[in-house]
Structure formats: C-alpha cells, structure tokens
Amino acid sequence: MSDSRSIPSDSAIQFDSHGRLRHFLTIHGMPRETLLGILDTAESFISFGQREIRKVPLLRGKTLVNLFFEPSTRTRTTFEIAAKRLSADVINLSATRMSTSKGETILDTVRTLEAMHTDMFVVRDSASGSSHLIASHLPPHVRVINAGDGRHAHPTQAMLDMFTIRREKGGFEGLRVAIIGDILHSRVARSQIHALGTLGVDEIRVIGPRTLIPTEIEAMGVRAFSDMRAGLRDVDVIMMLRLQRERMEGQLVPSEQEYFSRYGLTEDKLKLASPDAIVMHPGPINRGLEIASSVADGEKSVILSQVTNGIAVRMSIMATLMGGTDRENGPVTP
C-alpha cells in the first residue's frame, strides 16, 4: 500500500499546474533553468540602485505583507526596499505567536491578512515548514516567499549568494565550495547546498565539529569535513555561517576560544584555499567567533556585495512570482 502512495517532494507546491513558479519556499527540487532565470533577471535589476529613478511599475497596485514572526531588521528591510522598487505597497508586520493552540494560530493570522487582499506574503518563522503550511492554505493567486523557516530553508539568501558567486567567478562549473560552521541548525546552509548542487558546482564541502553536522548530510550531495584545514584546501568559495551565541553554552561546542581555534576563519587558514578564493557570510557577523575581523574586512571578502545583491535578487524573485499570472504586464524586462 505504502509503495503505491505518491510521496510528494517538498518542491511540488511551488509550481502551478502549468509549471509556473507560484511560491518561493525552498530551492530543493527547483529546475536549473528556474534558478538561472532568477539570476538573469536579477542582473537586469542590479544597475537600478545607481539610477536616478529607482522604481519600475511591475508590482504597482499589488500589496506585499512582510510577516515576520521572528525579529529581523536586516532581511525585512531588504525585502521592503525590493518591493518598493517594484512599486508594490508594503506592509510590515512583526508578529509574535504562541506556539500552540493558545491565541491566534499562524493560519488565522495569515487568513485575516489575506482577506484584506494581500497579493504576496514574505514570511519568516522559527518553525521549519511554516511557509509550506501557509502556502498550502492560501487561494491560488496569493504568493508566498520564504524568508527563513526554522532550520529548513532560506532560499532568497541562497539565491543572492549564488548571484554573488556568479558575478565574482563568472559561473559555477569547476568550483569547489566550502560551507563552514553550524550546519545542523542552519537554514542558510541547507538552501545553499541545494542551490550549489542544482547549479552544478564541482564539489560542495561542509566543515564543522561533528556536533554541528547533521546526520546523513552526504545524502544532500556534500562531503563533510571536521578538519577545517583539510576542508579548505583549494576551495574557490568559502561560505561562513553565523554561529548563534546560544549554541556556545557548552553542549555543542565547549567554548568560543576553542571554536575559533579550530573553526574560525583566519588569515592563516585562508592561505590554504585557492589564491583567488572569495569569502562570504550571510551576516550579521560574529567577529572573533567564526571569522577574524581582518578576513571579514579583507580583500577576499565579498560580504558587502552580498547585501547589495540581495535587493536585486529579491526584486527578481518577486517579479518572477507575480509575472506567472500577471500577463498584461508582459515579460519581466525592466
């Protein structure tokens, strides 16, 4: 019986019956062309920031709700700027929710806002799967962008990382990429791994102590290293992760000093990577915990470009999702 049962991928819900992208919830299962299309469109938006008139009317008359159940000023702001440059009306909601039946449930909140004619939700929540839940309970014309759900996915962050890599490296073929730090709790790492795999880099490595590497991570197509020096050898792209301070209380990692001694990115360790390697970080940075200041601010660092690119990439994702149904606006070519 179970064998005849169709097992859905967590990606299927993102596409409508015509194969058009409706939601942006996870990179897992997304076709390569979809990802490249988003990167190409982002490329056309990148010069925008420098123009005098920074707006296009692609989302004029549309309402976007930034629904953040977890506080985040940075990410919310980049979504807000991206939406405004596309001429959308933006409403920011920093909501809190009780984690059980007490109070309004996450679906109640979303349905209430949807009843006010919201066209697109950008959702961040501390529970893995929240944006899938929301997307599966909204009418078909409403779009959902996952701005981070628990440990599961942060697909727009991964896309801006891919955009940055392509700009710096010219493409993905032949690249060796290392993701370093708390892989276990990182939604960023999971989305990066799916994106890098789909875009066809040569090798993906994850580096960290065994307490922070999830079980069976190899099934995601990566090689796991616990020796950072071995893992860094000849890599072209170094993607650092933020280590939450609350993980440093002695149960997963003994101390900040010990962590930095083994897994902090220093100038010395950086020499093991390829000479033209780039250093990335999703921010905010813990200087002296996962990365030395001199590296974060050094010539190999592209951390600030990531922030700038984030706006163009999020504009591209929003335009792509709305373009799926809004035919009168024509193809997305600003």
């Binding site: 967590d10 897992h28 440990r151 999971r190 999830p214």
Partner: peptide, 13 residues
Amino acid sequence: HEGEISTRLGLPA
C-alpha cells in the same frame, strides 16, 4: 526520525 529527512527538512530529530 534522525536521518535523511530530518536533515533535509531541518526538523529536530
């Protein structure tokens, strides 16, 4: 269950 699915979905295992 701790395994491929918990790792992919980022769920406590």
